[in-house]
Simulated scan of single mutants.
Amino acid sequence: MAERTHLTPRQKYGEELRRRRLAAGMTQQELAEKVICSHTLISHIEAGRRLPQPEDARRLDQVLGADGWFERWLLDLENRYADHFAEAAELEQQAVEIKEYAATLVPGLLQTETYARAVFRAFSPNYRAEELERRVVNRIERARVLDNPASPVVWTVLCEGVLRRRVGGGAAMAHQLGEIADHAEAGRIRLHVIPFSTGAHALMESMVSLMTFADMAPAAYVEGLLTGQLMDEPSRVRNCQAAYYLALGDALSHRQSLALVRAAAREHEHGERVQHP
């Protein structure tokens, strides 16, 4: 009983689901079929790794006769992130390996405070200062996953356009690229840039984040304007992985990429056009 006091609210939510499922005499697979979701999702919820979507919570209440418990308590577990990214943000913190491709802007895990603030200002022209700062803090908090020098292993593939787009001004962009280069030089991330000269490549339609875990199946996340999709279906994740490796084959080497990022940082700092080293 003493052990339960150390459970997080999400783990307690999962424990309640497990308790009610067992009381109803159902396996995870049987519950998943009745709720119309994957067996994997039920497993993740019970382990406190993920939360159901509101419609899934409503179906859990109906199937288990929980009188609205799961839907009501879901509201109390409000995410710090946009709904479409919330589950991916949770999984990101548990990953042992993250492979990212960024098509238009620096990945959230690598954004500096100034860069992130400029991104949020551009997205919300009528922003409130306190709301903008909350978003910036949440984004910077994500980067703490990089404080551990050993895990997760991080691969970052950037489109050359990410280096050229001057977000937040020349000085801010120079600092941002300098931070990325520092991580790469220190061995914290593996860095590759896909130059414009490559032309078409396998990931040009979308950003993607591939996450691998110690105790569960890998997942992939893609995102667009006000929308995102987390995928854990094995065949779809494998297709995303295949596209990533195809694009990686078209990228500059780690050494060449590091040199290009350093050169781009210097040129932003001096207000020059970014050129290949």
Rank of each mutant, 00 (worst) to 15 (best):
G249C: 01
D76W: 08
H183Q: 05
R255C: 05
T104V: 15
H6R: 14
Y127C: 02
Q11I: 04
G249W: 03
L191Q: 03
P125Q: 09
C159A: 11
V222D: 02
G224D: 08
A214T: 06
V162G: 10
E179I: 06
K12F: 09
A95H: 01
R128I: 10
G170E: 04
P234E: 09
Q176K: 00
E55R: 14
R20L: 15
E90T: 13
E269G: 10
H276D: 01
V193K: 03
E33H: 11
E179G: 10
R236G: 04
G249D: 12
V157F: 05
A47K: 06
Q111N: 09
Q256D: 08
G108H: 05
L75N: 14
R144Y: 09
A118K: 03
R164Q: 02
E113R: 10
V145F: 07
W69K: 08
S257E: 00
K34W: 08
G65A: 01
N148G: 06
H254V: 09
V261K: 07
I180D: 12
L163H: 10
G199F: 09
A181M: 02
A103P: 03
R10M: 07
A32W: 13
Q11E: 10
Q28M: 14
L110Q: 13
E233N: 01
M26R: 13
M211P: 00
A172L: 12
T27F: 03
R255W: 14
R4S: 15
L177K: 01
R58Q: 05
P234W: 02
